[in-house]
Design a protein around this nucleic acid. Structure first.
Lengths: 341, 341
DNA sequence: GTTAGCACTCACTTATTCAGAGTGCTAACA
DNA sequence: TGTTAGCACTCTGAATAAGTGAGTGCTAAC
């Protein structure tokens, strides 16, 4: 374990590096932070901290830079707990109020706010509905050949699909079909729709072309309901960070950000962790091993959940990101509920 | 007017510059393109072309670069008409088939394809529905307090909204309301819904709280139907272009690309022009005066329209972009119709 | 244990040189 | 008169060299 002075020095170094983005030397620390010791002493301590793996040196005669381990220690132990100021909270509330009309816009706007406040990239994973319970299905006639299926879930989401009627089928057949499906599936989450349920529907419908139509409809619903949406914000913030002065690096990261599935996987890894911080090399995906991710999982009606995250260089204002995500987290469920009516 | 030889030289220079991105000198032209004259002669011609404003020189002793006027002449007169090869067409069709399930995905995928093929940024403006005709509205009961409104348009789009019932109103009231609205608005485009129609609805409903609910519903529909969506593709392609080796320029353009309204305005300016090319300084918005935009307007059922576009440095493969957009244009309406069922 | 002093390292900046590509001009040529 | 070869000149970009400054590690004194 690090003694008191080493901790204070490490903290000073990380604070300084986070705000300056320059390798920090003993002299700077001695001057800016009043630790009551000379640069030489700090140099010795820094050498120790490097030995222990908390700091790194780019070349023999440059200042030190925090390592992943250093940041980890900082985040776990040295970081003073921060809260958003009332001012900031009010500002965020105002942004939401001004912009948000539809549920979709909540996620979009959340991403924007996070990136604006943290000056980093934000990721917002909207809840997937596979854990929502099926509530009911109704058909509406569209024209002679087609009907509209309206599907509702317990969480209050509504979707519609246009369905082609098989030859010979009537709207009355479809109404009968909806009764069967409603009876069998009511209360089932989309995840839980099993082959057994399908079998029951088949038995009750007793008409194979109708059953096929029902099956296709259910599959199409599952398809859309299961795909969760990912909202990205602030990719241009990247360009202001000195660690991305190089076009090659920008390209690498932007290309990665286009790989939606990869991003989803990364966020999934932290689903349910509450507030979690992953630093530099702790990241499994090598493309972001000089970045850190702060994630927070939010809940909606107990079950349904999504994730919001900040992605930025390891040199990141962790305190700010964490306090912001906590706040957004609490807000988000509330705002979505209000909007859903 | 330029004589035959000047034209051929201009063409050669532009071709070369488009593929090399390097200022091109007399020697290169003489060597690569068999014009039957010596570099010295070409030098003289190039000096003339510069005088006439078709070429520019960065400094006294560098090769020449085409000016906006030069590209304009090239696009209008020198560009051989190109068609997509059957191979490419087949490839594109395959991409669509593999990826596209929902109407929304058509636009998304179109943007992706355009950027992939042209290696530039693509813009796809999805048709706004304000010109779609209202077809019918139906209500479904959701729970005691709320109903679902399902709105259909002639173009085959279906939307739903959750509506809160005013105190004391019953589902039967809403059913009656839908009858009135359907009678009055049937066949009206969203653009055409006038205060007169609203007045008629008011007269028929004869209940001010119910009328308020109806009004709100109509407004909400107009809100969503009127906002057209913009899909962007290939922003990372930017980073491969040598003209964007500089981080500052990347930032400027990426920031501009975040201004959705601005982009829409730019596309709107060309709405209905068919295939249109805007080069460099011809652009009104100063942020893209070293870029060119190729746009094409597509139609859906005569009225409904949108725009697809390629945005890239003035040094762009105009022929490729134009032939691709023409092809996509023809395809797009077809694919959307098929998908809509 | 702490600190001052000093030699040393390394990146970054500035200046200089040099090669290469390209031009414009002149004079010769067909 | 239009075309071309030749040549002096210009400018960029890469390579090299020297100088500067921030920072370190080590040693010896406090």
């Amino acid at each position: 374990m690090l003694d008191e002075r080493k901790q204070r020095i490490l903290q000073a170094i990380i604070n300084d590096y986070i705000s300056s983005a320059e390798p920090v030397g003993s002299r700077t620390i001695a001057r800016k932070y009043d630790l009551g010791v000379s640069p030489a002493t700090i140099r010795n301590e820094m050498a120790d901290l490097e030995m222990l793996g908390y700091l790194e040196q780019l070349h023999t005669s440059s200042g030190r830079v925090p390592s992943s381990k250093g940041y980890r220690f900082y985040v776990d132990g040295l970081l003073p707990h921060q809260e958003m100021s009332e001012n900031e909270k009010a500002l965020i509330d105002k942004w939401y109020k001004a912009k948000v009309r539809r549920v979709e816009e909540v996620f979009q706007e959340t991403a924007k706010i996070i990136s604006r406040v943290t000056k980093n990239i934000s990721l917002v994973l909207a809840p997937q509905l596979s854990q929502a319970a099926f509530r009911c299905l109704q058909f509406l006639p569209l024209d002679g050949r087609r009907v509209i299926a309206v599907i509702m879930t317990d969480a209050g989401f509504v979707e519609n699909k246009i369905v082609e009627m098989p030859d010979g089928a009537t709207f009355e057949d479809f109404r009968r079909m909806s009764n069967v499906i409603n009876k069998v599936l009511a209360g089932h989450t989309f995840d839980m729709i099993s082959s057994e349920s399908l079998q029951r529907i088949r038995d009750e419908i007793m008409d194979s072309t109708l059953y096929d139509a029902a099956l296709e409809l259910i599959h199409r619903s599952l398809d859309t309901e299961k795909t969760e949406r990912l909202y990205l914000g602030g990719t241009t913030q990247l360009l202001n960070q000195p660690e991305f002065r190089d076009v090659g690096k920008i390209k690498d990261l932007l290309l990665m950000l286009e790989e939606e599935q990869l991003l989803k996987d990364i966020l999934h890894a932290h689903l349910g962790d509450g507030l979690s911080v992953t630093i530099g090399h702790e990241n499994k995906y090598s493309g972001i091993q000089d970045c850190s991710i702060v994630t927070a999982t939010y809940h909606l009606d107990g079950e349904l959940l999504g994730t919001i995250a900040v992605l930025g260089p390891t040199r990141m204002e962790y305190g700010k990101a964490m306090s912001l995500l906590s706040y957004m987290n609490n807000n988000l469920a509330e705002i979505i509920k209000q909007l859903r009516w």
